[in-house]
Design a binder for these strands. Structure first.
Lengths: 140, 140
DNA sequence: CTATATGCAAATTGTTTGCATCATA
DNA sequence: TATGATGCAAACAATTTGCATATAG
Protein backbone atom coordinates (compact mmCIF):
# COMPACT_ATOMS: atom_id res chain seq x y z
CA UNK A 1 0.00 0.00 0.00
CA UNK A 2 2.80 2.35 0.93
CA UNK A 3 4.63 1.28 -2.20
CA UNK A 4 1.56 1.99 -4.31
CA UNK A 5 1.02 5.54 -3.04
CA UNK A 6 4.71 6.26 -3.48
CA UNK A 7 4.64 4.96 -7.05
CA UNK A 8 1.54 7.01 -7.80
CA UNK A 9 2.97 10.23 -6.40
CA UNK A 10 6.22 9.65 -8.27
CA UNK A 11 4.21 9.62 -11.49
CA UNK A 12 2.10 12.65 -10.49
CA UNK A 13 -0.98 10.50 -10.15
CA UNK A 14 -3.23 11.45 -7.26
CA UNK A 15 -4.09 8.95 -4.56
CA UNK A 16 -7.88 8.85 -4.74
CA UNK A 17 -10.22 6.41 -2.99
CA UNK A 18 -11.48 5.09 -6.33
CA UNK A 19 -7.96 4.46 -7.62
CA UNK A 20 -6.96 2.64 -4.45
CA UNK A 21 -10.15 0.60 -4.49
CA UNK A 22 -9.57 -0.52 -8.09
CA UNK A 23 -6.00 -1.51 -7.35
CA UNK A 24 -6.95 -3.28 -4.14
CA UNK A 25 -9.71 -5.20 -5.84
CA UNK A 26 -7.29 -6.38 -8.52
CA UNK A 27 -4.77 -7.39 -5.86
CA UNK A 28 -7.31 -9.50 -4.04
CA UNK A 29 -8.67 -11.51 -6.95
CA UNK A 30 -7.24 -14.02 -9.41
CA UNK A 31 -10.24 -13.75 -11.73
CA UNK A 32 -8.66 -11.22 -14.10
CA UNK A 33 -11.78 -9.04 -14.17
CA UNK A 34 -12.71 -6.69 -16.99
CA UNK A 35 -13.83 -3.09 -16.48
CA UNK A 36 -17.48 -4.01 -16.07
CA UNK A 37 -16.68 -6.62 -13.41
CA UNK A 38 -14.47 -4.19 -11.49
CA UNK A 39 -17.24 -1.60 -11.70
CA UNK A 40 -19.88 -4.02 -10.42
CA UNK A 41 -17.61 -5.24 -7.63
CA UNK A 42 -16.93 -1.72 -6.35
CA UNK A 43 -20.43 -0.28 -6.71
CA UNK A 44 -21.69 -1.54 -3.33
CA UNK A 45 -18.88 0.27 -1.49
CA UNK A 46 -18.62 3.20 -3.91
CA UNK A 47 -22.22 3.81 -5.05
CA UNK A 48 -21.34 6.94 -7.00
CA UNK A 49 -18.42 5.45 -8.93
CA UNK A 50 -18.65 5.84 -12.69
CA UNK A 51 -17.63 3.26 -15.26
CA UNK A 52 -15.70 6.04 -17.03
CA UNK A 53 -13.62 6.42 -13.87
CA UNK A 54 -12.80 2.72 -13.95
CA UNK A 55 -11.77 2.98 -17.60
CA UNK A 56 -9.56 5.98 -16.89
CA UNK A 57 -7.96 4.35 -13.86
CA UNK A 58 -7.10 1.00 -15.41
CA UNK A 59 -5.44 3.02 -18.19
CA UNK A 60 -3.45 5.19 -15.81
CA UNK A 61 -2.43 2.26 -13.60
CA UNK A 62 -1.41 0.29 -16.68
CA UNK A 63 0.59 3.22 -18.09
CA UNK A 64 2.28 3.57 -14.72
CA UNK A 65 3.26 -0.12 -14.89
CA UNK A 66 1.31 -0.97 -11.75
CA UNK A 67 -1.14 -3.40 -13.33
CA UNK A 68 -1.12 -5.40 -16.56
CA UNK A 69 -3.67 -5.69 -19.30
CA UNK A 70 -4.76 -9.08 -20.63
CA UNK A 71 -6.28 -9.45 -24.07
CA UNK A 72 -7.21 -13.02 -24.85
CA UNK A 73 -9.42 -12.19 -27.83
CA UNK A 74 -12.60 -11.32 -26.01
CA UNK A 75 -14.40 -8.10 -26.84
CA UNK A 76 -12.89 -6.38 -23.82
CA UNK A 77 -9.67 -6.36 -21.79
CA UNK A 78 -9.01 -7.98 -18.44
CA UNK A 79 -6.68 -6.66 -15.74
CA UNK A 80 -4.20 -8.23 -13.37
CA UNK A 81 -2.32 -6.69 -10.43
CA UNK A 82 0.53 -9.12 -11.06
CA UNK A 83 2.90 -7.37 -13.43
CA UNK A 84 5.68 -9.96 -13.51
CA UNK A 85 5.56 -12.04 -16.69
CA UNK A 86 3.62 -15.28 -16.51
CA UNK A 87 1.69 -17.28 -19.12
CA UNK A 88 -2.11 -17.49 -18.98
CA UNK A 89 -4.39 -20.42 -19.74
CA UNK A 90 -7.73 -19.60 -21.33
CA UNK A 91 -10.53 -22.15 -21.25
CA UNK A 92 -12.45 -22.05 -24.53
CA UNK A 93 -15.53 -23.46 -22.82
CA UNK A 94 -15.99 -21.48 -19.59
CA UNK A 95 -13.76 -18.54 -20.46
CA UNK A 96 -11.75 -18.72 -17.24
CA UNK A 97 -8.26 -17.24 -17.36
CA UNK A 98 -5.80 -19.16 -15.18
CA UNK A 99 -2.42 -17.90 -14.01
CA UNK A 100 0.54 -20.06 -14.76
CA UNK A 101 3.38 -19.57 -12.30
CA UNK A 102 6.37 -21.81 -12.86
CA UNK A 103 9.85 -21.46 -11.45
CA UNK A 104 11.26 -21.22 -14.94
CA UNK A 105 8.79 -18.76 -16.44
CA UNK A 106 11.62 -16.32 -16.95
CA UNK A 107 13.96 -18.65 -18.72
CA UNK A 108 11.51 -20.74 -20.76
CA UNK A 109 11.55 -18.11 -23.50
CA UNK A 110 15.20 -17.19 -23.08
CA UNK A 111 16.52 -18.90 -26.21
CA UNK A 112 13.78 -17.51 -28.48
CA UNK A 113 14.27 -14.02 -27.09
CA UNK A 114 17.96 -14.32 -27.68
CA UNK A 115 17.42 -15.26 -31.32
CA UNK A 116 14.93 -12.43 -31.82
CA UNK A 117 17.55 -9.96 -30.68
CA UNK A 118 20.42 -11.47 -32.63
CA UNK A 119 18.73 -12.66 -35.83
CA UNK A 120 15.97 -10.08 -36.17
CA UNK A 121 17.58 -7.11 -34.40
CA UNK A 122 14.42 -6.44 -32.41
CA UNK A 123 14.52 -5.01 -28.87
CA UNK A 124 11.99 -6.85 -26.71
CA UNK A 125 10.40 -4.93 -23.85
CA UNK A 126 7.71 -7.36 -22.78
CA UNK A 127 5.74 -10.36 -23.99
CA UNK A 128 2.45 -12.21 -23.65
CA UNK A 129 1.96 -15.97 -23.80
CA UNK A 130 -1.57 -17.37 -23.87
CA UNK A 131 -2.51 -21.04 -24.07
CA UNK A 132 -6.04 -21.82 -25.24
CA UNK A 133 -7.78 -25.10 -24.50
CA UNK A 134 -10.08 -26.89 -22.08
CA UNK A 135 -9.68 -26.69 -18.31
CA UNK A 136 -9.97 -29.72 -16.06
CA UNK A 137 -13.42 -28.77 -14.76
CA UNK A 138 -14.90 -28.39 -18.24
CA UNK A 139 -13.43 -31.68 -19.45
CA UNK A 140 -15.32 -33.74 -16.88
CA UNK B 1 -6.25 -23.21 -54.24
CA UNK B 2 -7.56 -26.70 -54.83
CA UNK B 3 -6.99 -27.45 -51.15
CA UNK B 4 -8.89 -24.33 -50.14
CA UNK B 5 -12.02 -25.11 -52.17
CA UNK B 6 -11.97 -28.69 -50.88
CA UNK B 7 -11.70 -27.48 -47.30
CA UNK B 8 -14.51 -24.98 -47.82
CA UNK B 9 -16.88 -27.54 -49.38
CA UNK B 10 -16.09 -30.04 -46.65
CA UNK B 11 -17.36 -27.45 -44.13
CA UNK B 12 -20.40 -26.52 -46.27
CA UNK B 13 -18.95 -23.11 -46.97
CA UNK B 14 -19.62 -21.89 -50.48
CA UNK B 15 -16.77 -20.97 -52.76
CA UNK B 16 -17.59 -17.36 -53.61
CA UNK B 17 -15.40 -14.85 -55.42
CA UNK B 18 -15.30 -12.59 -52.36
CA UNK B 19 -14.23 -15.44 -50.07
CA UNK B 20 -11.48 -16.53 -52.43
CA UNK B 21 -10.30 -12.95 -52.88
CA UNK B 22 -10.03 -12.42 -49.11
CA UNK B 23 -8.08 -15.64 -48.65
CA UNK B 24 -5.82 -14.90 -51.61
CA UNK B 25 -5.08 -11.44 -50.38
CA UNK B 26 -4.11 -12.80 -46.97
CA UNK B 27 -1.88 -15.43 -48.62
CA UNK B 28 -0.02 -12.84 -50.61
CA UNK B 29 0.82 -10.41 -47.82
CA UNK B 30 2.89 -10.52 -44.65
CA UNK B 31 1.36 -7.30 -43.32
CA UNK B 32 -1.29 -9.01 -41.15
CA UNK B 33 -4.06 -6.68 -42.34
CA UNK B 34 -7.19 -5.89 -40.39
CA UNK B 35 -10.71 -5.95 -41.83
CA UNK B 36 -10.57 -2.38 -43.05
CA UNK B 37 -7.25 -2.94 -44.84
CA UNK B 38 -8.55 -6.09 -46.51
CA UNK B 39 -11.67 -4.20 -47.56
CA UNK B 40 -9.67 -1.31 -49.03
CA UNK B 41 -7.30 -3.68 -50.81
CA UNK B 42 -10.13 -5.58 -52.50
CA UNK B 43 -12.38 -2.65 -53.38
CA UNK B 44 -10.62 -1.81 -56.69
CA UNK B 45 -11.21 -5.35 -58.01
CA UNK B 46 -14.53 -5.91 -56.22
CA UNK B 47 -16.21 -2.49 -56.22
CA UNK B 48 -19.46 -3.78 -54.73
CA UNK B 49 -17.87 -5.68 -51.82
CA UNK B 50 -19.24 -4.76 -48.42
CA UNK B 51 -17.23 -4.44 -45.23
CA UNK B 52 -19.84 -6.65 -43.56
CA UNK B 53 -18.96 -9.37 -46.06
CA UNK B 54 -15.30 -9.08 -45.08
CA UNK B 55 -16.23 -9.37 -41.39
CA UNK B 56 -18.38 -12.44 -42.05
CA UNK B 57 -15.70 -14.10 -44.15
CA UNK B 58 -12.77 -13.64 -41.83
CA UNK B 59 -14.97 -15.17 -39.14
CA UNK B 60 -15.96 -18.18 -41.27
CA UNK B 61 -12.42 -18.75 -42.51
CA UNK B 62 -11.10 -18.50 -38.97
CA UNK B 63 -13.75 -20.91 -37.67
CA UNK B 64 -12.85 -23.29 -40.46
CA UNK B 65 -9.22 -23.14 -39.32
CA UNK B 66 -8.04 -21.71 -42.65
CA UNK B 67 -6.71 -18.40 -41.35
CA UNK B 68 -5.66 -17.20 -37.93
CA UNK B 69 -6.66 -14.14 -35.97
CA UNK B 70 -4.05 -11.90 -34.35
CA UNK B 71 -4.95 -9.67 -31.44
CA UNK B 72 -2.01 -7.62 -30.25
CA UNK B 73 -4.07 -5.18 -28.20
CA UNK B 74 -5.15 -2.80 -30.93
CA UNK B 75 -8.80 -1.86 -31.26
CA UNK B 76 -9.28 -4.39 -34.07
CA UNK B 77 -8.03 -7.82 -35.11
CA UNK B 78 -5.51 -8.68 -37.78
CA UNK B 79 -5.53 -11.78 -39.95
CA UNK B 80 -2.89 -14.16 -41.22
CA UNK B 81 -3.14 -16.96 -43.79
CA UNK B 82 -0.37 -18.81 -41.96
CA UNK B 83 -2.09 -21.06 -39.44
CA UNK B 84 0.96 -22.92 -38.13
CA UNK B 85 2.08 -21.56 -34.77
CA UNK B 86 4.74 -18.87 -34.82
CA UNK B 87 5.50 -15.95 -32.47
CA UNK B 88 4.87 -12.37 -33.56
CA UNK B 89 6.92 -9.26 -32.87
CA UNK B 90 4.96 -6.05 -32.40
CA UNK B 91 6.75 -2.72 -32.70
CA UNK B 92 5.38 -0.29 -30.13
CA UNK B 93 6.45 2.66 -32.28
CA UNK B 94 5.33 1.89 -35.84
CA UNK B 95 2.84 -0.87 -35.02
CA UNK B 96 4.29 -3.34 -37.51
CA UNK B 97 3.66 -7.01 -36.76
CA UNK B 98 6.58 -9.21 -37.81
CA UNK B 99 6.46 -12.97 -38.26
CA UNK B 100 8.98 -14.98 -36.35
CA UNK B 101 9.80 -18.28 -38.04
CA UNK B 102 12.44 -20.32 -36.27
CA UNK B 103 13.26 -23.98 -36.76
CA UNK B 104 12.47 -24.66 -33.15
CA UNK B 105 9.19 -22.74 -32.86
CA UNK B 106 7.43 -25.99 -32.12
CA UNK B 107 9.72 -27.17 -29.38
CA UNK B 108 10.59 -23.86 -27.68
CA UNK B 109 7.40 -24.12 -25.62
CA UNK B 110 7.50 -27.88 -25.23
CA UNK B 111 8.57 -28.02 -21.60
CA UNK B 112 6.05 -25.40 -20.42
CA UNK B 113 3.26 -27.12 -22.32
CA UNK B 114 4.23 -30.37 -20.74
CA UNK B 115 4.04 -28.89 -17.26
CA UNK B 116 0.68 -27.26 -17.99
CA UNK B 117 -0.74 -30.63 -18.91
CA UNK B 118 0.83 -32.52 -16.00
CA UNK B 119 0.71 -29.97 -13.19
CA UNK B 120 -2.44 -28.02 -14.09
CA UNK B 121 -4.39 -30.74 -15.93
CA UNK B 122 -5.21 -28.34 -18.77
CA UNK B 123 -5.60 -29.55 -22.38
CA UNK B 124 -3.89 -27.08 -24.70
CA UNK B 125 -5.31 -26.70 -28.20
CA UNK B 126 -3.34 -23.70 -29.42
CA UNK B 127 -1.31 -20.76 -28.20
CA UNK B 128 -0.24 -17.21 -29.01
CA UNK B 129 3.13 -15.66 -28.24
CA UNK B 130 3.62 -11.94 -28.82
CA UNK B 131 6.79 -9.97 -28.15
CA UNK B 132 6.44 -6.20 -27.83
CA UNK B 133 9.29 -3.80 -28.33
CA UNK B 134 11.09 -1.64 -30.88
CA UNK B 135 11.97 -2.83 -34.37
CA UNK B 136 15.34 -2.15 -35.97
CA UNK B 137 13.99 0.55 -38.28
CA UNK B 138 12.43 2.54 -35.47
CA UNK B 139 15.51 2.34 -33.27
CA UNK B 140 17.68 4.16 -35.82
C1' DC C 1 -34.62 -25.76 -55.83
C1' DT C 2 -32.41 -25.23 -51.34
C1' DA C 3 -28.96 -23.43 -48.53
C1' DT C 4 -25.69 -20.20 -47.93
C1' DA C 5 -23.64 -15.56 -49.12
C1' DT C 6 -23.87 -10.75 -50.31
C1' DG C 7 -24.64 -5.90 -49.45
C1' DC C 8 -26.91 -2.34 -47.26
C1' DA C 9 -28.44 0.19 -43.28
C1' DA C 10 -29.61 0.09 -38.64
C1' DA C 11 -28.43 -1.52 -34.16
C1' DT C 12 -25.21 -2.84 -30.67
C1' DT C 13 -21.32 -2.63 -27.60
C1' DG C 14 -16.93 -1.41 -25.61
C1' DT C 15 -14.51 2.68 -25.00
C1' DT C 16 -13.42 7.65 -25.17
C1' DT C 17 -14.35 12.48 -24.71
C1' DG C 18 -16.05 17.12 -23.06
C1' DC C 19 -17.11 19.44 -19.33
C1' DA C 20 -18.64 21.10 -14.86
C1' DT C 21 -17.68 19.95 -10.25
C1' DC C 22 -14.71 18.05 -6.71
C1' DA C 23 -10.54 16.51 -4.05
C1' DT C 24 -5.67 15.88 -3.60
C1' DA C 25 -1.07 17.90 -3.20
C1' DT D 1 -4.98 27.26 -4.98
C1' DA D 2 -3.46 24.64 -8.88
C1' DT D 3 -3.48 20.25 -10.94
C1' DG D 4 -5.41 16.19 -11.70
C1' DA D 5 -9.77 13.12 -10.86
C1' DT D 6 -14.63 12.16 -10.82
C1' DG D 7 -19.10 11.40 -12.82
C1' DC D 8 -22.32 12.14 -16.23
C1' DA D 9 -23.97 12.14 -20.89
C1' DA D 10 -22.91 12.44 -25.50
C1' DA D 11 -19.87 10.85 -29.11
C1' DC D 12 -17.18 7.30 -31.38
C1' DA D 13 -15.56 3.23 -33.66
C1' DA D 14 -15.41 -1.63 -34.41
C1' DT D 15 -18.46 -5.15 -35.08
C1' DT D 16 -22.96 -7.55 -35.55
C1' DT D 17 -27.55 -8.08 -37.11
C1' DG D 18 -31.88 -8.16 -40.00
C1' DC D 19 -33.39 -8.65 -44.22
C1' DA D 20 -34.17 -8.60 -49.18
C1' DT D 21 -31.76 -10.17 -53.09
C1' DA D 22 -28.39 -13.01 -55.37
C1' DT D 23 -25.62 -17.06 -56.24
C1' DA D 24 -23.42 -21.66 -55.41
C1' DG D 25 -24.32 -26.60 -54.85
Amino acid sequence: MKRLTDELRKKHLKVTPQRLAIYNYLSQTTSHPNVESIYNALKPDYPSISIATVYKNVASLRDAGLISEINVGEDCCRYDAETKFHPHLVCKKCGTVIDCFFDDNDCCLASVKDKIKKDLDFDIENETLYFYGICSKCRE
